[in-house]
Amino acid sequence: MLEARLEQAAVLKKVVDAIKDLVQDCNFDCNDSGIQLQAMDNSHVALVAMHLKTDAFSPYRCDRNIALGINLASLQKVLRAAQNDDLLTLKAEDAPDVLNLVFESAENDRIAEYDIKLMDIDQEHLGIPDTEYAATVTMPSSEFQRICRDLNALSESVSIEAAKEGIKFSCQGDIGSGAVTLRQNNNVEKPDLSTIIELNEPVGLTFSLKYLVNFCKASSLSNTVKLSLSAEVPLLIEYKMESGYVRFYLAPKIGD
């Protein structure tokens, strides 16, 4: 059986908010390394991979591998009943029909209990190779979100160019064009505001902004976001959590 308790329900709420517009139904795979999820969007352009490690939970107990097939809209409905700082316990039997969620507020001794019906989801798992990227850029997640939103007002795609001096996001649309450049800067006092570029070689790629705007819904998970780019491989966008991550992979546009 599975029994996993999060100190803060907000963690799961944010994870679900981050992926629910990309993926409708998916398996939460529970095993002795924690709870993992891997799913593609309907059009097979993007892939999300999530891992909440056992450290994220206290206690964490999972005797055998369990796949919890969940409709994310349903999960979100139930999670709306939880306060951000409620304790959240997930429980399931070994071959479960339902996932049991208990929200406990320490302050007023309120205990809320919900069951969500599970579904059988036949999901393909893709092997994601370890990649040495041409460029890895760490920047404030709010800044990335703002850039994607602003450029999406002009165009449906963005070109991202990473060089030693900085990272440039640019687009061209019917009404005109736009570009935002972040210079590499190391903010010692507020490290989360830094833009750090690790460069093997300069790289430029074009991506659909619709997906990037969607990924930015994970911004509340982390103050920083890491973009990893290489020619002709999917862009990796990673939001790190205290004990885990949400990673998005986006196939590049080709033939530009």
Partner: peptide
């Protein structure tokens, strides 16, 4: 511009 790539052409099925 450009044609959208498919993620499955980059990652192999397990």
């Amino acid at each position: 511009g450009g044609q959208q790539g498919n993620i499955m052409s980059f990652f192999q099925k397990k």
